[in-house]
Amino acid sequence: MSILVNKDTRLVVQGITGKTGTFHTLQCIDYGTNVVAGVTPGKGGQLWEGKVPVCNTVDEAVKQHGANVSVIYVPPAFAADSILEAIEAEIPLVICITEGVPVRDMSEVRRRLYFHNTKTRLIGPNCPGIITPGECKIGIMPGYIHKPGRVGVVSRSGTLTYEAVWQLTQRGHGQSTCIGIGGDPINGTSQLDAVRMLNEDPDTDAIIMIGEIGGSAEEEACAYIKEHVKKPVAGFIAGASAPKGRTMGHAGAIVSASGAGTAEAKFAAMEDAGVSIARNPSEIADALLKIYKG
C-alpha cells in the first residue's frame, strides 16, 4: 500500500489534449491509472483519444466525473492558473509536472495553499510526479522500473529517483510510493512533508530521501527524522562539486553567495539525523540496504 495515490485514485489531466499531456496520459493509462477526465478549456464535450471525456473546467471534472487527483501538463505561463483552479475545485491532491513556472506565480500559489480552508496538497511543480507501483502512476516516470513493495522514495530530481528505484528493484526491493517533489525553489510539498507522510504510512518500512544543493529542505527533513523517524532512512545529495552562485539546471539548485545550501551542510544534517549516506548515486539502494534488510 501507499500514500497519496492508489487504485482508487480518479485522475483528471489538466492539459490532456496537448502533446505532452497526451503522450504521458497514454503511458499512465497503460500502467493502469484510472483517468476519469481531462480539462482543456474550449474542448469540453469532446472525447480524448476516443476514451476520456474532456471538460472545460476542473470543477466539471470533479462534479461530473468524480475526479479526486489532478495532474497538470500545461505550459509554464498557465501553470499557476491551473493549480489555483484545481485548488478552488477542492481537489485533494494536485501534481504539477510543468517546468519553468515563474517563481512569483509560485509564491502566490503557496500563499493560497496556506488559507485555512484549503483542502489541497500540491506536489511540484517541475517534478516527475508520483507513483504507487502496481496501482497508480501519475507523471512522466517510466513505470516498468518500479515494483510494488515497502520502501518509500522522495526526491527533488527525476532521473536520480529513477536511478534509486532501479537499484532497489534490481536488488529485489519494491517501493510503496515514490514522490518527486520537484526542483524549483518554491514548491507545494517539501522533503519534510513527504518524509512525514511516509513515516506515518503503515505500509512503508524504509525511506530514501534524495536531495540537491540549495535551500534548506533537507536540513528541515533531517531535524524531523532525528526526532520522529524510527524507520531506516538513506539519503543522497547531488551537487557537491557545483560552484557557488550558479543555478545548476533546476532553478532551486543553487548554493547562495553566502554559502547557504551546500551539499556538505546537507550531508552533515543527514549524518546527525542518523541517515545512512550514499556518497555517490550508484550506492543509494546499497546505503539503505546496509541498515534495512526488508
Partner: peptide
C-alpha cells in the same frame, strides 16, 4: 539527462580525482 543526475555525475567525477568541465 536530468539536472540532479547531471550534478551527481559531476560529483562522482570529482570524487575519483577528476575535474568536471561542465554541467
Amino acid at each position: 539527462n536530468g539536472a540532479g543526475l547531471a550534478m551527481a555525475t559531476m560529483d562522482i567525477i570529482q570524487s575519483f580525482g577528476g575535474s568536471p568541465a561542465n554541467f
